[in-house]
Amino acid sequence: MAKKLDIRHFPGFLPITYLCLFLLYAPLIIVMIYSFNDSNSITNWGGLSLRWYEDVFWGIESQKFKKAALNSLLIAVAAAISSTSIATMAATAMLRAGKFRGKSIGFALINLPLMVPEIVTAVALLVFFSMIGFTTGYMTILVAHIVFCIPFAYLPIAARMQSIEEVYEQAALDLYATRFQAFRLILLPLMTPGIISGFLLAFIISLDDFIITNFVKGAGIETLPTAIFGAVKQGIKPNIMAISTLLLLVSVVFVTLSYLVGRMGQNKK
């Protein structure tokens, strides 16, 4: 009889997985390494140094980047708070309000920002704002960010809510709590990990956006990605690598946090 096949493993899949990981990380790691390059040109290696980080914080262009970073941060916080609140209400409607008219179309609506190509959303918003005479600026960026952050905030929030049984709220209602009390005192505390995850993901998505921001930002206002893009158009300079590395670390830290918070919630259960 022939040797029994190991049906779970295919030869060659492990090397391909390593290749996949390598392809995903190599460009990022190389940029991180070159951000410590002590050389004026991006091509030659001139030894280790922190001079480009110094340049980012105190150099000629530092004012521009600091302002852009502050804009990005404020918009991301505001967009994440708004979209998380909206998504929490939407998830409650979808999972805790039984059947109602417009439920399935409402679900499609929440996912709509994921389906429309970003560039189309960007153009549509630009056309819309100019048609109704809205001046482009902070508000237009913020509104656009809230829209496309909603589905990202919704995902972890809905996933969490699905895993919480409704019996707790039902018990509260039986004990004469109002529905608002049941929501605030029972559901929300249980939902905390999901809501934090949603907030962090929305925050990163907002911080990362380039295309839509680029269309609706109006003159004079830059976020970090649009400022970086503008600088890269004139060629990649070493300070761009330092900024990229910093932004990259921020994203990694936030995703890791979101992941850990999500797991913490699961372990408690």
């Binding site: 939407a90 409650t92 417009g102 409402g106 656009a144 929501f183």
Partner: peptide, 22 residues
Amino acid sequence: STYAGLGNLLMLPSWLIIGFFL
């Protein structure tokens, strides 16, 4: 369901934001 009848009210912000701005 706990919040039966509140579905459309809870969906209102999503409708306003995504409807009006997308």
